[in-house]
């Protein structure tokens, strides 16, 4: 538990979009997928996922439909819309720029200043 990082505000949406971009998933599946692709390094409270999901649906970035899960249970599956795909690209770029900038700022040595 201790080596898991708390999410930065606003990054949950990006992670959801990314997880769903790899194929339609239901809520619990999204959670597992995020854990899997982040190498289990990110801590997401399970309940916190749903407000995020509904928000993305309302913004038209995700679309949802009921289906049957691999456990043979009824579940709501989410997939990216065209707008969602576009948003994921933009957010990924923004995040990469930000991460690079922060990383290089943190890596700066006294003699480089």
């Amino acid at each position: 538990m201790t080596d898991q990082a708390q999410l930065l505000p606003g990054t949950l949406d990006l992670l959801i979009l990314r997880a769903v971009s790899l194929g339609a998933l239901h809520g619990y599946g999204i959670l597992l997928r995020i854990q899997q692709i982040s190498g289990g390094a990110l801590l997401i409270e399970q309940g916190a996922l749903y407000p995020g999901l509904f928000r993305l649906v309302r913004q038209g970035l995700l679309k949802a439909s009921w289906g049957t899960s691999e456990n043979n249970r009824r579940a709501k599956f989410y997939e990216l819309t065209a707008a969602g795909r576009k948003r994921l690209r933009q957010e990924t770029d923004t995040w990469n720029r930000l991460a690079t900038a922060i990383a290089s700022a943190l890596a700066a040595q006294p003699e480089e200043v």
Binding site: H26, G27, Y28, G29, Q46, G47, Y50, S69, N71, R73, R74, A75, K76
Partner: peptide
Amino acid sequence: ELRSHLQH
């Protein structure tokens, strides 16, 4: 949906 999550 939330119930489905708990069951999974």
